[in-house]
Design a protein around this nucleic acid. Structure first.
Lengths: 343, 343
DNA sequence: CTGAAAGCGCTTACAG
DNA sequence: CTGAAAGCGCTTACAG
């Protein structure tokens, strides 16, 4: 029996019904584990189901039931390990319910994101989790929701009229500044890069707020390149206008890059210069000296987003929810007291 | 107009047909961009399509056409950045055709993988790309294919009767050994971990073959733990039986971990000890000294796998194909000549 | 080039 | 607790 034969001779509910001497509706109930069917009938039907090698046709069920048991996930990049962990969190809670995840990568391009949103709608996903590009307007995404398609924003918030699962970035910056200040640092730089979305602005504002609160100069914000090798060579930018003794980084990618560049320039991190990362991806533990980093626990954020979406699908009309999870500072070895500095 | 109204009053082909004074079939042809329809009719229909806000219902189309325009992708973990890059490659070529990727994570568990395979079949995916767990038997996966569901194996090969996109691991090990030998190293360890699948065996055999060819001891194979912090503390294992002057690593995760551990033990990498990684993920460039690594280009492998699947879907009966891509050695700073060693 | 009819495999009321 | 009928929105032959 060739593959094609199998394809064509697909076993349907009706086939099972005939073999088991019941109606198609009864088989459907058994398949969906309804309690409305007697033990005896259920046992008989289940045996036939198995004998005939019945495979549930989710597509057909979706058409009739008007739900597809799929959720769409749009991420801005797959190259950053951070999003792998986020996906892992989403997949674990969505997968538990038996639903499937449809994944797409916008590459931080708004036009591509629009295409993907459209495509997901055509695929009939029951809801969408998206980390939206910086250009995305509130109207754009609220409209999707107005179509009756549940949307939850993850990591980047475009509107407060829709669900959002994110991270308390401002609190994280506060923790970083507090820690460095407690070590005696007063000139602290903030190294950033990438598109200007809510998560970017929150970090900037968090940094400025925390610095101002302590009467420190909040303006030492330095934009560095995106690519890893270029970040390392951007170290001189830190010292262009002032002479900071410490730098907080927008993410661990920047921290690792700067750590490399500082090393190249002969500085000993944690001794001559202090560095705090953000996100606490697994590499923070692997580098030497170990990188002190503000943990944003992407897996947890992914799980939060998935739970929000599931709840939204169940109750389309409840008020928008936001889950903003706390960060915590993972202290390792990349910071030292300012007094010890030899610069 | 509330979200529910939208849902219920979905615009169908029939609605469009009535407004445009044509038949439903004609609208269907326009939507699918068939050349069988006149310019005038097409223009008229397209206008109505747009006016009414028609959304293609992929689910309904799938049911009738017996293809879903989705492909399933099963990865063993999402925590390793390597798989993010692989996914990125798959997504880019699958996305180009307008198909959607259904993603699932087996967590290296065979039982979970079976569940996912079953679920993907129920979702009616047109094909599957999978990096299979070590326990997977040839029969298991050949059976999926016998059901008429195209499968391509990626990175790990269970059977040669099905398509496979992978990496020339043995060639990569050869490159690493050749390079270290050219620097004068004769005692070379191989640090490995993880489940024993084809990619694992190929690397082991590649290492042993390359060592034997040069008359070197092929048995210095050391198993290290999975978790990053534990790898660093596994450095003493390298020196338990012999005193290697260099180590090749199964992947960059191990290389980075051992680099950290060697640093902790006071050794200077590239001077006191040489280290070669495998995969060349972005961190290889960021660490100091920069890590010399055998590049396996996961994005390319992902693209290869996706192309194989697309071809297989188009021609179910052609002979199985394998695309084994070459590695190349990215030389950086983590290796030095053995003469310079002070041990 | 266009239309009328049938059917993909399921679930949903509605009867009994 | 079980069955007969209708229909989800599309595509596929088949006529014209």
């Amino acid at each position: 029996m060739s593959a094609d034969d199998h394809r064509k001779s697909r076993v349907t509910l009706l086939d099972v019904a005939r073999h088991a001497n019941v109606s198609r509706a009864t088989v459907s109930l058994v398949v969906r584990k309804s309690p409305l069917v007697s033990e005896a009938t259920r046992a008989k039907v289940e045996r036939v189901l198995h004998e005939l090698g019945y495979i549930y046709n989710m597509g057909a069920a979706s058409l009739r039931a008007e739900r597809s048991n799929t959720v769409g996930v749009i991420v801005p990049t797959l190259g950053n390990p951070f999003y792998g962990e986020l996906l892992s969190g989403i997949d674990s809670v969505v997968g538990e319910t038996g639903m499937a995840v449809i994944l797409a990568n916008s590459g931080e391009q708004f036009s591509r994101q629009s295409l993907l949103l459209q495509r997901m709608r055509e695929h009939g996903v029951d809801g969408i989790i998206a980390s939206l590009t910086a250009e995305t307007q509130a109207e754009c995404i609220e409209q999707i929701s107005d179509w009756g398609l549940p949307v939850v924003q993850v990591l980047r918030q475009v509107t407060d009229r829709l669900d959002y699962a994110g991270v308390d970035y401002a609190g994280g910056m506060q923790q970083a500044v507090d820690y460095l200040a407690s070590l005696g640092h007063r000139e602290i730089a903030f190294a950033v890069h990438g598109p200007v979305h809510s998560a970017y602005r929150e970090r900037i504002e968090g940094f400025r707020g925390a610095m101002l609160e302590r009467g420190l100069d909040p303006d030492l914000i330095v934009r560095v390149p995106m690519a890893m090798p270029d970040i390392a060579s951007a170290v001189p930018l830190l010292f262009e206008r002032k002479t900071p003794t410490a730098t907080i980084c927008f993410n661990d990618v920047i921290a690792l890059g700067l750590a490399a560049g500082l090393y190249d320039s002969g500085r000993v991190i944690g001794q001559d210069f202090s560095l705090v990362g953000f996100d606490d991806v697994s590499d923070a533990e692997a580098t030497r000296p170990r990188l002190t980093s503000v943990s944003s626990r992407p897996t947890t954020v992914g799980q939060n987003a998935a739970r929000l979406l599931l709840q939204r699908i169940a109750k389309p009309h409840r008020a928008p929810q936001q889950i903003v999870s706390k960060t915590y500072l993972k202290i390792r070895q990349s910071c030292g007291p300012v007094d010890a500095f030899t610069i």
